[in-house]
Structures are given as C-alpha cells and as structure tokens.
Design a binder for these strands. Structure first.
Lengths: 123, 123
DNA sequence: ATATCACTTAAGCTATTGCTTATCTATTTG
DNA sequence: CAAATAGATAAGCAATAGCTTAAGTGATAT
C-alpha cells in the first residue's frame, strides 16, 4: 500500500519554514549567526538531552539552513545564509506584492479625487 | 495538575513562524497577497474540507498574519504585512549578522596579508 | 591499553497537528 | 416563510513532532 505522505516530496521552502518554526531551532540559528559552534556548545544553553539537540540539528541540516563538518570527534556547525535568504525572500515577495497593490489602489483613489471637479460635467 | 504547555506562552515570532510552516497556510498567504478573499474563495483551491481551511485560517489570524471582517454572512480576509515583516526581519537580522561577521574576518585576513612584508622584521 | 569525551543510533512514549464527519447558526434569496 | 448559502463549532482519529533513556562508535588523553 502506497501512503499519501510517501508521494508528496517537500519543497526546500517547506523544510526551511518547518525548521524555523521551532523556538529551539531558531535559538540555535541565532547562536550560529554569531559564529560557528560545536554540537555540545550548541546544546549547552538548552535544558534537553543531547540526542534531542541532535534531532533539531539534523532537521536544520536537512533544510540547508545549517552545514557542519566533523574533524576528529567534534562536529563544527555553521549557518548557511543562502538558505535563510530563501525563506526571507518568500516573505518579502508576498509582503511587497500586497504593498504594491495598496499603492496602486491609493493612486487610483487619488486620481478619482483629482479628476472629480473637471469630470463632473464631462459625461 | 498544571501541565507544562499551559505555562509557556508562545511569542508572536513563534506563532508567526509556526503559521508559515504549513504549505497550505503559505498558499493561503500567497493568495491573499494578491488581494482580499472570502473564506470559501480561500478554500476553493484546496482539496480539503471547509472546517480544515477554517482551522488554518484561525491559526493565521491568531498569528496576526491575516485579519478578517465579517459582513453579513461572508467573512473577508486580508493579509497583515507588519506581521510578515516580523518574521522577515528576524531572518534578515541573523543572516546579516553572519555576513557582517564574514566581512570582518575577510578584512582581518586582508590586513594580515598587506602588513605581511613590512611587519616581517618589525618585531 | 583503558578511560573519557563528543557525538550517534535506536526505540519508545506523549502531546500536538492536520485532517475528517456531523451538526449548528446566522444570513440572504425565492 | 422556506430553502439555499456562508460560515462556525464539536468530537474524534491517524500521523507527526519533540522529547526521553539506553546503548552504541570512534577519537583523544592518561
């Protein structure tokens, strides 16, 4: 039997926003925005087990928001700004689309007002 | 008995990112970025029941990303750009923090290179 | 060599999420 | 008024998310 969730592959945007939805993961991104960190450094501020932190990290890496490299026994993590841009740009596009729409509406109403008196007898 | 999840109140940023994490809700935001829509207009593109759409809508309104007004029997929804900015600005702040950090590092390495020959005997 | 450190993997458990159907309440419209 | 329309509320259910503990693995220090 083929399950529904096996069919629909998630887009990069899906996984990025899903990764950012969790407060712990956003705190990890915030920490990494100030510079690289090892897994245990990343884990230290949180009141949760290391495996829990690793699961968050796995999701962040899966989304491309974070990349890491293991040297010896320590894995160093850093943030990938281009994956952040992806989400940022999506929001920006929707917000500016709305604002442009408001501007056009404003212009139209302005035009109506200005043409009001010299158009009153025009028809 | 007091449950843990009854204590921790979610921040505006939490609910905003959580709202944006779902593909259906992002599609609704995308639709609304092109102009206001009624609940059934919003629901039409999706292969799910109206109550399901209403639950998504409730979450979007709870996050402040969408506002709505009911006139007669139709509720008209529109997007609230300032709530979008909240999430957008959070991402932007982290991304630019990282990029500034990289720039400073680049400047430092550049400086090391330029001072290399006239500093070789300097100490 | 062996103990410690830094992670990693696996399994399991609970709360939440994203749906569903069924039922209900207001507003139009005929 | 009766019937259709637009939305709202409630209850329930399967899948997922976010943890936990226990038990690895491989690198480094004693």
């Amino acid at each position: 039997m083929i399950l529904k969730h096996m069919l629909n592959q998630l887009s990069p945007l899906d996984v990025a926003f899903q990764a950012l939805a969790d407060p712990t993961r956003r705190a990890m991104v915030e920490r990494l925005s100030r510079g690289p960190a090892s897994v245990s450094e990343l884990a230290r501020p949180f009141a949760m087990s290391l495996p829990a932190v690793m699961q968050h990290l796995a999701l962040l890496e899966g989304s491309g928001l974070v990349v890491s490299e293991k040297i010896g026994r320590v894995r160093t993590c850093r943030i990938e700004p281009r994956a952040l841009s992806l989400a940022e740009d999506w929001i920006n596009a929707r917000r500016t689309a709305w604002e442009r729409r408001l501007d056009r509406l404003g212009d139209y109403l302005e035009e109506l007002k200005n043409n009001g008196d010299d158009n009153a007898s025009g028809t």
